[in-house]
Design a protein around this nucleic acid. Structure first.
Lengths: 228, 228
DNA sequence: CGCTGCGTTGAGCTTCTTCAACGATCGTGG
DNA sequence: CCACGATCGTTGAAGAAGCTCAACGCAGCG
């Protein structure tokens, strides 16, 4: 598969002309990373942004004493670190490959001039940023106003929705990573999972989650009930 | 002062031609609100976004049992609820005037066509959204990885920087509102303020804050120390 | 086979919230 | 201009939620 044909499947680049795809494929660099490899660290000089071609990446913050808070986990087709294109010149968080992955690197300057020539790409970009703002607002709301079990319930419903509303799905990340995504530590997550399964909301076998009481989860997620 | 001349002072609208200002001033509606008045609620139909002309607005989320988390406080020149222009059609949070205020309402459709004709406005918009993404990322980091005293220290340093690095400044919001902005409750904030002042980091007289030990605050904000 | 990373469990502790009471302050209408 | 009520802010005591530390089982992999 050529780079140019892969680009067409990326929402951010929808609506470009063929010649623009060619142009884009000339300025884009493809980079490969192994599982666990750092893509960039907070504060690093940023000369452009990335798009996931294959694999997954986690974007995260670190506290002084090493605890991490995951901000995003991105998969194929999703751009990351675009913020660095528009504000300042350093990356605002850390990025690490969660598995063997390939990312496209898009240099800042070239991208900006492309935007100027193509309003629909600007619109795509703004739509993508808006969705992230919304997601962040939700995370802030959750962290501040909800407790861990409620956040976890919401996350399970989200994952279920991602999987065609299936009652059964796999966690695509380790439980430690899930803990970090929920803004807590592995021990707390483990205890909550066992409470959830002993109360028959879900059952857990390794990384396979089976939802038994989705309306119960919904009530939890909305903060209407508490996990006893 | 005409609307058109006010528009020129708004960063989002920088770089427009005179005729575009005229055009903009024709589609914009000016609205007045009293202190405490609701501008919109989460879930309301959104047909456009706002820019603060005068006064201040708080954007916030509410939990089931009524606790609020403030996401932003915006003053003159700052746009809000632009997210609604690009995703979905409902407001993702609540907005309320903190004092007697005037806001410009910009209808969605007209604004979008203006963007298409003017790439520099798209760039302005993306710059503004990027800054907010960065701010949100910081809030998430703080909520998840830092304790309230550390967040408060960071906020004081931020306010001090806003005031030409003056050691003395006024809180522009009530302490209850500050508590909500810090993701806590008034009681906790009050206790922390008294600890901070008894340890001579700052002194507090009403809403006037005086910083005595800015390097101490810095260490707190960066999570290097704890408030005893 | 042992090592290393992940997950689980227990115990104790810190931080923050909740509930309740009270004092201060502000704005407003009389 | 004062008095009143309402909101805001402070303080105390008790309790909940989540974190830390430590130990241990288990799996995968060299």
């Amino acid at each position: 598969m050529t780079i140019s044909s892969q680009l067409a499947t990326i929402p951010l680049f929808e609506g470009l002309t063929d010649s623009q795809y060619d142009q884009l494929s000339k300025i884009i660099v493809s980079r490969k990373y192994d599982r666990g490899q750092t893509i960039f660290s907070e504060g690093d000089e940023a000369t452009g942004f990335f798009v996931v071609a294959e694999g997954t990446v986690k974007i995260f913050k670190l506290s002084m004493d090493g605890k991490e808070q995951i901000l995003h986990i991105f998969g194929p087709g999703e751009p990351f670190a675009e913020v660095a294109v528009f504000t300042g010149s350093t990356f605002p968080a850390h990025a690490e490959a969660l598995k063997k992955s390939t990312f496209f690197f898009v240099p800042r300057k070239e991208f900006i001039s492309l935007i100027h020539e193509n309003p629909s790409m600007a619109m795509n970009m703004m739509a993508s940023m808006s969705m992230r703002l919304k997601k962040f607002a939700m995370m802030i709301e959750d962290l501040s106003l909800k407790e861990v079990p409620n956040r976890l319930a919401a996350h399970f419903l989200y994952l279920s929705a991602q999987n065609n509303d299936s009652k059964e799905f796999q966690l695509n990340i380790s439980k430690s990573q899930l803990a970090s995504l929920m803004g807590t530590v592995p021990e707390t997550l483990s205890r909550i999972l066992s409470r959830m399964s002993s109360q028959n909301f879900v059952s857990i076998h390794g990384s396979k989650i089976t939802v038994h009481d989705s309306s119960g989860l919904r009530a939890l997620a909305d903060g209407e009930t508490k996990l006893g």
